[in-house]
Design a protein around this nucleic acid. Structure first.
Length: 869
RNA sequence: GCCGGAGUGGCGGAACUGGUAGACGCGCCGGAUUCAAAAUCCGGUUCUGGCAACAGAGUGUGGGUUCGAGUCCCACCUCCGGCACCA
């Protein structure tokens, strides 16, 4: 008799068609069971799926399918983060419109996702560049304008001279644009901002309650928000002798160390500080003007060169400030180590207690006064830790915390300052000078100013059928598009031609999936599904996306659209997908990267890698480091090719097996082959079993030892896999447990009715345990095992605790902590009996013989340690 | 510099609560099958010594706690990620 061969290319599309025909994964608010919302971060439609997508979406699919089998009412949607810069770049290159390019990519990538067998409810698909999606974002923005949570201000922005756009601080990496790599310039442009700082405290405190989020993400967010407590106080401008400035100017400073104020020996303004021109003396005017001009012209990259180093550039203004604590005048400097954007843009400088001030004081010959006593063995330099206050009159002797408190109380009593909390977090600049984004729904009227577009006139539709020639946005280039009338006074007016940061769309898509067709931003269905029970995505979004996501949820909460403070209770950040790199170096030093798919590895007879050759010419190549898959290192592997060769189940199995989800995943061709081999063996074994007919009538009471042993292993595996998926998210160990079980099943030969019934139960368990990971082959094998209904809605196997009870356990016997033997004993054996059995072992006897037993440690059913001397 | 995370066979990784280190997979070695190869199946595979039984060593380094440490404590080294003049 010949058994069918495993042919994934044939069965996988058939099974996918069946799921579609039966609409197996539609989410229904009225369905039975506890709701479970499992969400993977939506992709940017760049053209084709990469391995990172495959990994991300396989994790989500495994979790979704598992919870569905456990009886939960699961929502797993998918959509497209469709606005963004790459579409414009591709449009220029290919002479198409960004919209057409984007939609074509979506079509292709949707097909790729279908081919991987992900259990999405496609009826809820969201495409963020569609007016029916972004109109609600526009509506929300107009509401925020009216509430003052969206505002416009002239702001110095990061200008990317290549992409011709403003970048968020977060989009600047080491002074360069995160996409173009161009050195970023500084420009002043009117911009729209969302007042995320209004929520800074709440966003910070909320982290403490996010138990299901990784600590790394919470830490990064805490640092990003950067809350610091201290005081703000004002100092009068004066001359060297303390005579007050006739104009009455004051400088406000923020400090976290008001306890050190007696040690202030100078003060500093940021170069952009508005008081610079007013307080500078005529003698210093020229030097100050030159310094400010230099600082302003210095690019971010130039500033980075000096950052952190000893050299701190600055210039004396000629003016002094009156230190209210001492009543003495201190010189006022301008230096670019003080940032206008943080605090008040001015500081009191205490070189004795601050490293930066110490460096500046050293290079400018300024006095240093210690106000905290360093330890005796302190070798010098600024002391920034705790200690008793010194040289500080009425603060002397107090520790830092007490002294801070007392200093603030004094400032408040004097009416010159107050307690103050400062955040590093800045308001979110949402304006982009790009075309391919959601139009900002604002009209500028010469009379009425910036007016939000009325709800009835929304959406402001972005024209998609445009000629896109270059970096200039078509809606900026077209004078007609912007012409309109003022909604308030009817006068001729102009539209805003900037568009939103694309983080706006990805900040609320998770909620729209709940109400994809609502004639409002959201409806009651969002209250049913939210919060997201499991969110999955890359760690690269730890700060930006996930901060805006949490912020926007609160905006929607305050608009009465959703309940709860947080959008997602559990977060899983998957690791990178990495691969070997291979290269050749030209005689002139140029490096050519060669794709791993074109490489053959050579090994010595111990299995160690000894070299690599190019498959094309058979000549050796150099082996580089293991790195994140990227175009620049040419070490990316196209998942489509893998699916074509091995099938979706193999790709899914390998990507879940090779590493735990939060660690980096090293791609390996032979590892993929191993996954494929396992599935083929599984297929053959189940078919061989089923070829003799479906076995029934398992009688657990009538089993022999071998049969009982197999049943025990089956139920141990069910327990382990359930726990690994539900609680630990260690899909790799879940798979290993199933493989181990299959190895035992392969060795079990028993054609008796009971033996076959045990095997029937075992294979049914295996097929259900693997279903979340490799759903296609499992659907087919489920039928092979005699079942009609779809496996995807079959229940998860239950553990039979009685089957897990052991007749014998292995007791490890140690002598002085070293393993000297193992004995098979009945469970629950007491210490005396265990000791007797242990000492009966020859090898144990040998190590105990002639020595005195000092102590015996007995861990029942596990270990017996005999301590001798 | 600060804040996270990680260092375990030839490789990816396992060991969840202090209790058998190396599960599972890859690779490699040997065997079966084959005219031969691929595929498949069976066996072996941390290192050292030994025919073997077994013994010794072993989880980045150095110390410590413990009957017992990959796991806990102290000091340090290396790698990865994030932030970086934030007063």
């Amino acid at each position: 008799m010949t058994l069918p061969e495993y042919q994934p290319q044939e069965i996988e599309p058939l099974i996918q068609q069946r799921w579609e025909r039966e609409q197996a994964f539609l989410a229904d608010e009225d369905a039975a069971g506890e709701k479970y919302y499992c969400l993977s971060m939506l992709p940017y439609p760049s053209g084709a799926l990469h391995m990172g997508h495959v990994r991300n979406y396989t994790i989500g699919d495994v979790i979704s399918r598992f919870h569905r089998m456990c009886g939960r009412n699961v929502l797993q949607p998918m959509g497209w983060d469709a606005f963004g810069l790459p579409a414009e770049n591709a449009a220029i290159k290919n002479k198409t419109a960004p919209a057409a390019w984007t939609y074509a990519n979506i079509e292709h990538m949707r097909d790729q996702l279908r081919r991987l067998g992900f259990a999405y409810d496609w009826t809820r698909e969201v495409t963020t560049c569609r007016p029916e999606y972004y109109r609600w974002e526009q509506l929300m923005f107009t509401r925020l304008m009216r509430q003052g949570l969206a505002y416009r201000k002239d702001a110095e922005v990061n200008w990317d001279p290549v992409d011709q756009t403003v970048l968020a601080n977060e989009q600047v990496v080491d002074g360069r644009g995160w996409r173009s790599g161009a050195v970023v310039e500084r420009r002043t442009i009117p911009q729209w901002f969302l007042r995320i700082t209004e929520y800074a405290d709440e966003l910070l405190e909320g982290l403490d309650r996010l138990e299901g989020w990784p600590d790394s993400v919470k830490t990064m967010q805490r640092n990003w928000i950067g809350r610091s407590e201290g005081a703000e106080f004002r100092m009068a401008v004066c001359d060297a002798d303390g005579a007050l400035d006739p104009a009455g100017h004051e400088v406000a400073v923020f400090t976290t160390r008001p306890d050190t104020a007696f040690g202030m020996t100078y003060a500093v303004l940021a170069p952009e500080h508005p008081l610079v021109d007013r307080v500078t003396t005529p003698e210093q005017a020229e030097a100050v003007t030159r310094f400010v001009a230099d600082a302003g012209a210095a690019s971010e990259a130039d500033r980075l060169d000096v950052q952190g180093g000893m050299e701190k550039r600055g210039v004396f203004t000629g003016a002094y400030l009156l230190n209210p604590f001492t009543g003495k005048a201190v010189p006022l400097y301008i230096a670019d180590y003080v940032l206008m954007a943080y605090g008040t843009g001015a500081i009191m400088a205490v070189p004795g207690q601050d490293e930066r001030d110490w460096d500046f004081a050293q290079s400018h010959g300024l006095p240093i006064v210690r106000t905290v006593q360093p330890p005796e063995d302190w070798e010098g330099g600024p002391w920034t830790e705790d200690g008793p206050a010194i040289n500080s009159e009425w603060l002397n002797g107090l520790d830092v915390t007490e002294a801070k408190q007392k200093a603030i109380e004094w400032l408040e009593a004097e009416g010159i300052g107050e307690r103050r909390v400062n955040f590093r977090l800045r308001d979110w600049g949402v304006s982009r000078q790009r075309y391919w984004g959601c139009p900002i729904p604002v009209i500028y009227c010469p009379e009425c100013g910036a007016v939000p577009v009325p709800e009835a006139d929304l959406p402001v539709v972005l024209p998609e059928d445009v000629r896109f020639m270059g970096v200039q946005s078509p809606i900026k280039a077209d004078p007609e598009w912007r012409k309109t009338t003022c909604p308030e006074c009817g006068a001729a007016a102009e539209r805003e031609t900037d568009t939103f940061d694309t983080f706006m769309e990805s900040s609320w898509y998770y909620a729209r999936y709940c109400s994809p067709d609502a004639e409002a931003q959201l409806d009651e269905r969002a209250r049913y599904w939210l919060p997201v029970d499991q969110y999955i995505g890359g760690i690269e979004h730890a700060i930006l996306h996930l901060m805006y996501f949490r912020f926007y949820h609160r905006l929607m909460r305050d608009a009465g659209l959703v309940d709860g403070d947080e959008p997602a209770t559990n977060l899983l950040c998957q690791g990178m997908v990495v691969a070997d790199t291979f290269f050749r170096e030209d005689p002139d030093g140029e490096i050519h990267w060669i794709n791993p798919a074109d490489i053959d590895i050579e090994r010595d007879d111990k299995g160690q890698v000894s070299g690599a050759v190019h498959r094309g010419d058979g000549q050796p190549v150099q082996i580089g480091a293991v790195e994140k898959m990227s175009k620049s290192k040419n070490n990316g592997i196209d998942p489509q090719g893998l699916v074509d060769r091995y099938g979706a189940d193999t790709v899914r199995l390998f990507s879940m097996f090779a590493a735990p989800p939060d660690q980096s995943l090293e791609w390996s061709e032979s590892g993929v082959e191993g996954a494929s081999r396992f599935l083929r063996r599984l297929w053959n074994q189940v078919n061989a079993h089923a070829a003799c007919g479906v076995a029934e009538g398992l009688d657990p009471e009538a089993l022999n030892d071998q049969q009982r042993e197999i049943r025990r292993r089956v139920h141990d595996a069910i327990a382990k896999v359930s726990d690994d998926i539900r609680r630990r998210y260690t899909f790799n160990t879940a798979i290993a447990a199933v493989m181990e079980l299959c190895n035992h099943l392969a060795r079990f030969e028993d054609s008796s009715p009971n033996g076959r019934a045990v095997m029937q139960e075992a294979w049914e368990a295996v097929v259900r345990l693997l279903n979340p990971i490799t759903p296609h082959i499992c659907e087919v094998l489920w039928q092979t095992l005699g079942h009609q209904g779809p496996l995807c809605s079959t229940s998860w196997p239950e553990v039979d605790d009685a089957a897990r009870v052991r007749q014998q356990v292995t007791l490890v016997v140690q002598v002085n902590g070293k393993v000297r033997g193992r004995v098979e004993v009945p469970p629950g054996l007491d210490e005396a009996a265990a000791r007797e059995r242990a000492l009966a072992e020859e090898n144990v006897q040998r190590h105990v013989d002639g020595k005195t037993v000092r102590k015996v440690i007995h861990v029942p059913d596990k270990l017996l340690n005999i301590v001798v001397a």
